[in-house]
Design a protein around this nucleic acid. Structure first.
Lengths: 355, 355
DNA sequence: CTGCCTGATGACAGCGCTGTCACCGTAGGG
DNA sequence: CCCTACGGTGACAGCGCTGTCATCAGGCAG
């Protein structure tokens, strides 16, 4: 009895019967195709509505070779940036009539399985690679399979993709600190032991370039790697920086997540921000505002939206889109975590140097 | 020439030819089915590997009626909780051989479209509804279509789902504040103007129950709605609370996001936490630790994992799983944002009451 | 030696669509 | 009044699988 009630779902043939036309006509109508008379169209659409007809993608993709789906490959799912990017992607994809398949590949095992079974293949029309470091073999494999690729938040020579100009953004961020009078500027970059997340030295390069332009010699003691998210290595890094002969007066963190933890650590050890130490982040994390963190804001959602457009492009016009790369702007958002460099170190007896 | 290189992808028939067997046998082998001789199995598997064969779900689902996909419906994608839940879900789903289709329905328009075209139907074997307030019509629609539903992070009577016991968790959180000596405890709940996010009065109920158990009359002035994420209404709410004849000494925030902003606002107006005001959040947000926020931690990832198991369940054994509901524990994580209630208000001349 | 059962495999129809082609009626040009 | 053109429609094959049934070679009891 229960089984009876479960409508298996109307088929296109059912709709055709109800509308008194052939299946072909229903198909044409529903696809909004060329030549269907208005009267027929109306009848078909009503019949479809009455039966709550929803087309079976399985059947149509079997014949068209298109699945109407795109796969999204991410190194994890709980990082703010990825969530924001997906949040931009999903509606844009849906608007284009595409469904979004998400694959979160975090462990080596998952990775092997993903590329071995390649579930995306034949089950998606394109693959969006988001901040994921593809090995050359993996990339080759995907190419062999003829899977159109779109790289999101990473720049791959001669490939469709969307990203920001990390070099330029980091350069501008560093210049901002220089303009505030800072001369000793540290740089904290995330260590990625898994090697899954895509990264480049681009931001670090930008930082170094800005220092060089200002005639300041790079000091490797000021560049430190820290575990991206959890763990004690940040404390150690801060300890190193504070115990230098000439400690920094500003720290540029490669990600806002690092900057947040940095703020906490500094508060804990009574280093006032920004009076004694300015902090600049990178990402435009949603929490940056409540934390009053100055940051280089990436348009994360927008990256997702553009990625969706590119996906649509590479599917429908591979020739035109194959190498299209979009660069989005990064904006410096100055907030309370950055301020002028403190004056010269107080000589003995000078007090705090405060007027 | 380029077109030539694009391998359309081997079919099952190709594998069969290469292995010198019939397509049926290949199908049986690849599905790990009953009776295939070891020798044949080996030949088939090798042929499949050599051709990088990946089965076409479109074709197989056309005949089996199963898509091997589950759809996940979320009210948005950039909230921490949803990201964490998805992060738990994705690998668990993949391990069960299911692909994850994500639908982020944020606007009324998207909502109408989703339920109108119901892209999930016939394109997914089950729908996971995550913190999404389905209208009765929407629910009825899904039921009519025979789509198995799993409710995540929300409790629906007689439905498969996984959630936490919000009443009990809020009661415990409130008791914790009571045990610290607080008697005036405010409660901040999120206003959800869109009405998309599922919510219940459960947490508020738990808060009230704990107060009642302690013999404290509820004071409606202490319960305030604030915009969940952005906006100025928090400032107003704090203003109200601080201007009461008897202001609260602790605030229980229904979500960590509210608690974070609360911490910022209080810091801005020089109300020391926890010396003058204790703050307790709810969620177990990843940022709670660096913020040193006490919180009722939900096992967000675990919710996702269990949801995946339930999805597998309702697909393969609907009878057994139809009404299965799993309740996961919430743990109080005490941190630095909560402390003993300050002593009685200092009488004039008493100073700060600090020894 | 016959008959039957069992394990292993192949043949074939058909899932629900789409694309192609054939078809039909009507309008307009010669 | 015939012929073509064309808008509108239907018939039909077939996409790549799976499930069912048929087939066949051995093994073993009778």
């Amino acid at each position: 009895m229960v089984g009876e009630a479960v409508a298996k779902g109307a088929t296109l043939a059912d709709v055709a019967r109800r509308a008194g036309v052939s299946p072909s006509t229903v198909s044409r109508t529903l696809r909004g195709l060329s030549t269907v008379s208005p009267a027929t169209r109306a009848r078909v659409e009503e019949a479809a509505r009455e039966l709550s007809f929803a087309i079976s993608r399985s059947a149509s993709s079997l014949v068209t070779g298109r699945t109407g789906r795109v796969a999204v490959l991410v190194p994890n799912l709980d990082a703010w940036f990825l969530g924001a990017a997906l949040a931009g992607m999903a509606p844009a994809l849906n608007a284009a009539g595409l469904d979004m398949l998400v694959y979160s590949v975090t462990t080596a095992e998952q990775r092997a399985q993903f590329f071995d079974r390649l579930p995306a293949r034949r089950n998606a029309d394109a693959l969006l690679v988001v901040s994921f470091a593809l090995s050359p073999e993996e990339r080759a494999r995907l190419d062999d399979l003829g899977m159109p690729l779109v790289f999101v938040s990473q720049h791959e020579q001669g490939r469709a993709g969307v990203s920001v100009d990390d070099v330029e953004a980091a350069r501008r961020g560093t210049r901002y600190l220089l303009n505030l009078g800072h001369r000793r500027i540290a740089y904290l970059e995330p260590a990625d032991p898994s090697g899954f997340a895509w990264s480049s030295r681009a931001r670090l390069d930008g930082y170094r370039a800005a220092l060089a332009e200002a005639g300041i010699d790079g000091d490797d003691d000021l560049v430190r790697q820290v575990a991206d998210w959890q763990g004690p290595s940040l404390d150690a890094a801060v300890g190193r920086l504070l115990s230098l002969a000439e400690p920094p007066t500003a720290i540029f963190a490669e990600t806002d997540d690092i900057a947040f933890r940095l703020l906490t650590v500094l508060r804990g050890v009574n280093v006032p921000v920004p009076r004694r130490m300015s902090i600049l982040g990178f990402d435009g994390h949603a929490m940056a505002e409540p934390w009053d963190l100055s940051t280089m804001a990436q348009p994360a959602r927008r990256l997702g939206e553009v990625a969706a457009e590119l996906a649509h492009g590479v599917i429908h016009d591979p020739e035109a889109y194959r190498e299209r790369h979009v660069v989005l702007p990064v904006e410096l958002v100055p907030r309370g975590s950055t301020g002028p460099a403190p004056g010269p170190r107080p000589r003995p007896g000078d007090g705090d140097g405060v007027q």
